[in-house]
């Protein structure tokens, strides 16, 4: 499974919680320890085990475009075939 991570712009987040609900890996929580400039508890990536796959579901459901998503570059299918052919 690919490895991935996300960057949350906590100042833009309005604490709507949708990313925490839709994340298939359940690695996003609401950061109850702090309030952002607008007084919301922002979302926070909590992924000690590195389970985030970079699937971007959180970014798709986020109404405020707060989340940038990074994902491990999978070897392209062509490169894999060449590896098989040339051994």
């Amino acid at each position: 499974m690919a490895k991935g991570t996300i960057v949350i712009d906590q100042e833009r987040c309005k604490g709507c919680t949708l990313c925490t609900l839709f994340c298939p890996q359940h690695v996003i929580i609401m950061d109850e320890t702090r309030l952002n400039g607008k007084g919301y508890h922002p979302a926070l990536l909590s992924d000690a085990q590195g389970e985030c796959t970079g699937c971007a579901v959180c970014a798709v459901i986020c109404p405020d475009v707060c989340i940038s998503v990074y994902r491990e570059a999978l070897p392209k299918r062509r490169e894999v075939q060449e590896a098989i052919v040339h051994g």
């Binding site: 991570t5 949350i8 590195g50 970079g54 990074y70 491990e72």
Partner: peptide, 22 residues
């Protein structure tokens, strides 16, 4: 403050704010 973990250098940016949005 940006919240993340893990080493981003090996990872590719695959999703970000579209240009047409300010």
């Amino acid at each position: 403050m940006i919240s993340t973990n893990g080493n981003k250098s090996t990872l590719e940016l695959v999703y970000e704010r579209p240009q047409s949005l300010l």
